[in-house]
Amino acid sequence: MATIAIDPNYGYVLLAATSTFFMNFVHGANSGKYRKAAKVAYPAGYAPADRTDEAAQKFNCAQRSHANFIENQPTAVAAMLIGGLRFPLAAASLGATWTVFRYVYMVGYSSGGGDGKGRLKGMPFWIAQLGLIGLAGYTGLSLVMGW
């Protein structure tokens, strides 16, 4: 049976995972800033479709960016924690890269523009996320296979 000893470098994985929690707070503050500018009252999640002004557009983009973040964060963090058991420095590096590109994605998407193309600058987060998923899968497979 394979066993795993926690490498002291696993602390970097935990720090990278923690960075995503702070990034979630940044997303909330960003959405709040655009909500206030667009004068969209709670509990509305988005500005109504009949609002075509720039403030409403930017708020909707900021909200969608935040929603996309929270759709992907659980997968990224879980993969980071699992993959980091075997590959702590690689997982921490990919996790930190993921967080940085999620910030770039948020800033780009929130800039509005109507077509959402500002988010494309942050799309490399997908490469980091797929890398994390690969590390997690390999870690599981190696335990099962006894590698």
Rank of each mutant, 00 (worst) to 15 (best):
G113F: 06
Q57M: 09
I133V: 09
K121D: 11
G108K: 02
M145E: 13
C61M: 14
Q57A: 04
V77I: 08
N60P: 09
L130N: 09
A136T: 03
L81C: 02
R64A: 10
P124I: 05
L81F: 05
K39E: 02
G122W: 06
Y12D: 14
V144D: 12
R51W: 00
L135A: 01
Q63A: 04
Y109P: 05
Q73C: 07
P88K: 01
T18D: 03
A2K: 15
Y103G: 01
H66I: 08
K33M: 06
I6Q: 11
S31K: 08
G32E: 02
L15S: 13
N60Y: 12
L120V: 12
M23I: 11
V100G: 08
A44I: 12
S31P: 11
I70P: 08
R102E: 05
I70S: 09
T99N: 03
G11S: 10
D7I: 02
G131W: 13
V100H: 07
A47C: 03
G45Q: 14
K58C: 03
L94Y: 01
T139P: 08
D50C: 02
F69T: 06
M80L: 10
T20Y: 00
G146N: 11
G11C: 04
L141Y: 15
D115G: 05
P48D: 10
M1H: 12
A128D: 11
Y42T: 05
A96E: 11
M106C: 02
I70Y: 04
Y105M: 10
K33F: 06
Y42E: 09
F125K: 09
G112Q: 06
M123C: 06
V40A: 03
M1Q: 12
G137Q: 07
F101M: 08
G32L: 06
G146H: 02
K39M: 03
L141W: 15
M123Y: 13
I6P: 06
G84I: 06
Q73S: 02
A91T: 06
L135G: 01
A29Y: 15
G122P: 04
Y109H: 05
G131C: 12
A128G: 03
S31M: 14
E54A: 05
I82M: 06
Y34A: 00
A92L: 03
